[in-house]
């Protein structure tokens, strides 16, 4: 279908983008890679008066190091994230999970920032950035602010960004030495996750010293499986991991849709968590 009519702006800097957004109020939409926004427009599920294309703003794309933190520009495409040597070395979980997103053509356009700002709990990257203890940096007319991932995802398709704020970068602590795995269950190759589980583990002397578990599509926002995380500390074998994974669905509120019931999603969360932790810890 043909999208509804809208005005178009292509600001040349973050400052200009923020000014344009502030002037337009609630009626403007940021356009990053367009791989979520354009399908919504084509299906006439969104009616912005103004589309603000941030695709040409210099400096929003690329990855750099800042001490023990990796700084990823919001406009870095999925394709670039997957192939970036710094991401692969220091945040392998993000690279490997991004490789499961959509298909190559979508990954050439879609961006990390767009995936996070879109705040779809079925998206793979929100749970991954949550498990990485990432932070999101937003810039608005009142300057910059940094939000921990756990405060960024507010509700279904709703982030903590104000309408006049632009997500400019994603900061993740380097996870050197941590084992990682993203386990995604989906029905056909290119479809979204029915449930996904993002796991990071730090091992010490054959035991899991610390674990972080992020859940995709187990509620209206990405979630951490905190009970499982606690139960995993000290786990030294597959039986202990299996016991800890039994708590993976505690505190979640998964939705009902054509591909799964809430009960089935809870079951998947437990099974996929066990698999993901075993793989991340090299115990599989």
């Amino acid at each position: 279908m043909i999208p509804p009519a809208f005005d178009y702006a292509r600001p040349a800097s973050v400052d200009e983008a923020v000014r344009v957004l502030a002037d337009a109020g609630e009626e403007a939409k940021v356009l990053a890679g367009g791989q979520s926004l354009l399908p919504l427009l084509r299906l006439r599920l969104a009616f912005p008066e103004l589309v603000v294309d941030v695709g040409r703003i210099p400096g929003l794309r690329g990855v750099r190091e800042d001490g023990n933190t990796l700084v990823i520009g919001a406009m870095t495409t999925h394709h670039d994230v997957i192939h970036d040597p710094l991401v692969r070395r220091h945040a392998g979980l993000l690279a490997s999970a991004t490789a499961t997103v959509a298909d190559p053509a979508v990954r050439h356009r879609g961006t990390l920032g767009g995936s996070l700002a879109h705040a779809d709990p079925a998206g793979d990257l929100p749970a991954v950035v949550l498990a990485l203890d990432g932070e999101l940096v937003a810039q608005g007319p009142r300057g910059r602010r940094t939000l921990p991932a756990r405060d960024f995802f507010v509700d279904y398709l709703q982030s903590a960004l104000e309408p006049d704020e632009l997500l400019v970068e994603v900061r993740v602590p380097k996870a050197d030495g941590w084992g990682f795995h993203y386990e995604k269950f989906h029905q056909v190759a290119q479809s979204w996750a029915t449930v996904g589980v993002a796991v990071l583990v730090r091992r010490d002397d054959g035991h899991i010293a610390e674990a972080r578990v992020g859940l995709t599509n187990m509620g209206s926002t990405p979630l951490r499986a905190s009970e499982t995380e606690d139960a995993l500390s000290g786990a030294g074998d597959a039986a202990a991991v299996t016991r800890a994974a039994e708590a993976a669905a505690e505190g979640t509120r998964p939705s009902q849709d054509v591909s799964a019931s809430p009960e089935y999603r809870e079951h998947l969360a437990r099974v996929l968590t066990r698999r993901a932790v075993l793989a991340a810890a090299g115990m599989g």
Binding site: L31, G34, Q35, R42, D53, H79, A105, R109
Partner: peptide, 24 residues
Amino acid sequence: SNCGACTVELDGVSVKSCSVLAVQ
């Protein structure tokens, strides 16, 4: 944006031309 029939190359990489604006 699922079928890929509309795939073209834009600046050297494959894209779904139904999911790109002409102005982009």
